[in-house]
Design a protein around this nucleic acid. Sequence first.
DNA 1: AAAACATGCAACCGCGAACTG
DNA 2: ACAGTTCGCGGTTGCATGTTT
Length: 267
Amino acid sequence: MGRSPCCEKDHTNKGAWTKEEDDKLISYIKSHGEGCWRSLPRSAGLLRCGKSCRLRWINYLRPDLKRGNFTVEEDDLIIKLHSLLGNKWSLIATRLPGRTDNEIKNYWNTHVKRKLLRRGIDPITHRPINETKACKDFSEAREEEDSLVKILSFGPKVEKDQENGLVCKKEIDEDLVGEERRCLDLNLELRISPPWQDQVHGREKFHCNACRFGFGNGKECRCGDVKCQTDESSSSSYSSSDITSSIGYDFLGLNSRVLDFSPLEMQ
DNA sequence: AAAACATGCAACCGCGAACTG
DNA sequence: ACAGTTCGCGGTTGCATGTTT
């Protein structure tokens, strides 16, 4: 037995919504609330599929929707959340009030994806595109890094820095030290060591997710990152044996509320 | 001015999860 | 426990609009 259709397709309109249909849907939901999408069209006097009504309401008619372009902050947040969650648009949307999953998805596909590619970052893995070849031997990888510096003559000027990897020249400032010198826009993370590690004075240093994605604020950070040690709760640097707890700590921001899933809890 | 092409976004579709009897 | 139903998500499509030739 096959799956039953969500509605009687013979008697439903498709395509763009008219003003009259919008008005009917808005007034019905205002007086009856959301939900029961299957029966809603008939009750509201709409010749539409329930799914279509739900989509129209959620993506376009909801009064709390934010209109207009995405801000730089929203842009950054989408990239950070996508690097954590992947194409979980609905989850990402919960962190951007007034934005819908569909809107974010469209924005990602039309703007952000292209922006990352221009920066040489794979929009799927959020790693430098060339890093997929990272298992080459050391010298080969170093040559690659050198050539990248040459290739990246467009956009921000890139230089090779002994301590910090590839760094944007315009970002190089004597007032900045360590991690702060890393190019914020072109973090290519090119290194020979396994990812997620830094070499600090000959010993390895592991970054927690909070630092890694720019959310480190001291309370959440336990990796000993310079940026985070200004806070009173900064703990001592992690040793290699702590890597598991470091990576596992506060995964997806469940403790730090970087990602607050409380609205998703069962009623 | 018009055709061709590119872009952005609303809407659709199919699937799997969750719910219900 | 199971089958049927409903909902929500993510991928994809198609159309309107803008830009280029």
